[in-house]
Amino acid sequence: QSSFEIPDDVPLPAGWEMAKTSSGQRYFLNHIDQTTTWQDPRKAMLSQMN
């Protein structure tokens, strides 16, 4: 996992939702293809902008 956290005020891509496990770990739900991931989809968006 990357060492940086994206602030919560940065919006997720369309169709995504952020949730937390009972222990507080963030994960991401993709409602478009109905998958979940630990990888923040905003990181991919930001790396494409740089």
Rank of each mutant, 00 (worst) to 15 (best):
S22F: 06
M49W: 10
D40K: 02
D9W: 04
P11A: 10
T36Q: 04
P11G: 06
P11V: 10
K43N: 10
T35Y: 15
L29D: 01
F28K: 02
G15Y: 05
V10Y: 12
P13I: 00
P41T: 00
L46C: 10
Q25A: 14
W16D: 03
Q48H: 09
S47T: 11
M49D: 14
P41I: 00
M18C: 09
Q39G: 06
L29M: 12
P41R: 00
D9T: 09
H31C: 07
D40T: 02
P7A: 15
D9Y: 09
P11I: 07
M45I: 15
E5D: 13
A14V: 13
R26T: 13
P7Y: 08
S47Y: 03
Q48K: 15
Q25V: 11
P7V: 13
P41V: 00
L29G: 02
Q1P: 05
S2H: 07
S23I: 06
I6C: 11
T35R: 06
A44M: 04
V10A: 12
Q39F: 14
L29K: 10
Q1F: 15
S47R: 11
R26D: 08
L29R: 09
V10G: 09
D8I: 06
S47A: 14
T35F: 14
Q25N: 09
R26H: 02
S3L: 01
T35P: 01
E5S: 14
A44W: 13
I32F: 00
S2Y: 06
F28T: 01
V10S: 13
Y27R: 01
F28S: 03
S23Y: 08
W38C: 04
T37W: 01
L12C: 11
D9C: 10
L29I: 15
D8N: 11
V10H: 12
L46R: 13
T37D: 02
T21C: 06
K20C: 11
L46K: 14
I6K: 09
P41C: 00
D33E: 13
T21P: 03
M49Q: 11
Q39K: 11
S47F: 09
S2Q: 07
H31N: 05
F28E: 01
N50L: 07
S3E: 08
M18A: 12
D33G: 09
P41E: 02
D40W: 01
Q34C: 11
S3F: 03
N50T: 03
D40V: 00
A44C: 12
I6D: 01
E17G: 13
Q48Y: 09
E17Q: 11
W16Q: 02
N50H: 06
Q39E: 09
K20S: 11
Q39M: 12
S23D: 15
A44Y: 03
L46D: 13
L29S: 05
T36A: 06
P11R: 06
V10Q: 13
A44F: 09
Q34Y: 06
P13N: 00
L12S: 03
S22N: 15
Q39R: 10
W38M: 09
A44S: 12
A19I: 04
K20D: 10
H31E: 05
M45H: 06
A19K: 10
P7N: 15
R42L: 00
S2L: 10
N50Y: 08
S23H: 10
G24E: 07
T37Q: 05
F4P: 08
Q39P: 00
G24F: 01
T35Q: 06
A14Y: 10
L12V: 08
T36H: 04
T36G: 04
G15T: 04
P11S: 08
E5R: 10
P7K: 13
I32Y: 15
L46M: 14
V10F: 08
N30E: 02
L12E: 03
I6F: 11
L46W: 08
G15D: 06
P11L: 05
T21A: 08
W38A: 06
T37V: 01
G24H: 07
I6N: 07
P11Q: 03
T37Y: 00
L46Q: 14
M49E: 15
G24A: 04
S2C: 06
G24D: 08
T21Q: 04
Y27S: 02
T37P: 01
M18V: 10
Y27N: 01
K20F: 14
K20W: 11
D8S: 10
L12A: 04
S22P: 11
P13H: 00
P13A: 01
S22L: 10
N50C: 09
H31G: 05
P7M: 11
T21I: 05
I6G: 05
P13Y: 00
T37G: 03
L12H: 03
I6R: 08
G24R: 03
D8V: 07
A14P: 15
M49R: 11
M45F: 14
F28L: 02
T35I: 15
E5W: 08
F4T: 11
A19T: 09
M18R: 07
Q48F: 05
F28Q: 03
Q48S: 14
D9L: 06
N30Y: 03
T35S: 11
T35H: 03
H31T: 10
S22G: 11
Q39Y: 05
P41H: 00
R42I: 00
G24W: 00
E5P: 11
N30W: 01
P13L: 02
Q25E: 15
L29V: 12
A19E: 06
Q48T: 14
Y27D: 03
N30F: 00
K20P: 03
S2R: 09
G24C: 03
S23K: 13
R26K: 06
A14S: 12
L29N: 03
S47W: 07
Q34M: 08
P13C: 00
E5H: 09
N50I: 09
M49T: 15
N30G: 00
K20I: 11
A19M: 06
S47H: 15
A19H: 08
T37R: 01
H31F: 01
Y27W: 01
D33H: 07
S22Y: 03
D40H: 04
T36E: 02
T37S: 11
I32G: 06
I32L: 13
E17H: 04
H31I: 06
F28W: 07
P13T: 01
D40E: 00
M45S: 11
D8L: 06
Y27K: 03
Q34K: 15
P11F: 12
L12I: 07
P11T: 05
G15M: 07
Q25H: 13
Q34G: 09
W38N: 03
L46H: 13
S2A: 07
F4W: 03
I32A: 04
L12P: 07
M45D: 15
I32P: 01
Y27C: 06
T21E: 06
M45N: 11
N50M: 02
F4V: 09
N50D: 15
A19P: 00
R42P: 00
A14L: 09
Q25L: 11
R42S: 02
A44R: 12
T35E: 10
Q1Y: 15
D9M: 08
M45Q: 13
A44T: 12
L12T: 04
S22T: 14
D40F: 01
M49P: 14
A19N: 10
G15F: 08
D33T: 15
K20Q: 12
P13K: 02
A44V: 09
